[in-house]
Computed example of a mutant assay.
Amino acid sequence: MDDYSTKIKNSAEHLIRNEFPEKALELDTLVSSEVLSFNEVTKIREEIQLPTADDIVAHLANGSKDHPHSTTAANMNNNGSHVENATAYVFNGTVPSNPLISILEDKLRPYILHFLDSVAIIKLWIQLMIPKVEDGNNFGVSVQEDSLAEVRTLETEVAQYIDLTCKYLISRGELIKKVVKYPHVEDFRRSVQSLDEKQFVSLRFVALELRNHYTSVHDLLMKNLEKIKKPRSNQAHSMY
Rank of each mutant, 00 (worst) to 15 (best):
Y4S: 08
S5A: 14
T6M: 15
N10V: 10
A12V: 00
E22D: 12
L25R: 11
L25T: 15
E26M: 08
L27E: 04
L30E: 11
F38A: 10
I44T: 01
R45V: 10
R45H: 09
V57S: 12
A61W: 14
A61E: 15
G63M: 01
D66W: 06
D66V: 10
T71N: 13
A73V: 14
N75T: 15
N75Q: 15
M76L: 15
N79S: 12
N79G: 11
N85D: 15
Y89F: 07
Y89E: 12
F91Y: 04
P99D: 05
P99M: 06
L104K: 09
E105I: 11
S118H: 06
S118T: 11
I121T: 11
K123D: 09
W125V: 04
M129H: 07
K132G: 04
D135C: 02
Q144V: 02
A149V: 02
V151C: 00
E155K: 00
T156H: 02
T156K: 04
T156M: 06
I170E: 13
E174A: 10
I176G: 03
V179T: 03
K181M: 08
K181S: 07
Y182M: 03
S191M: 09
Q193V: 12
L195H: 09
L195A: 07
R204P: 10
E209W: 00
S233V: 01
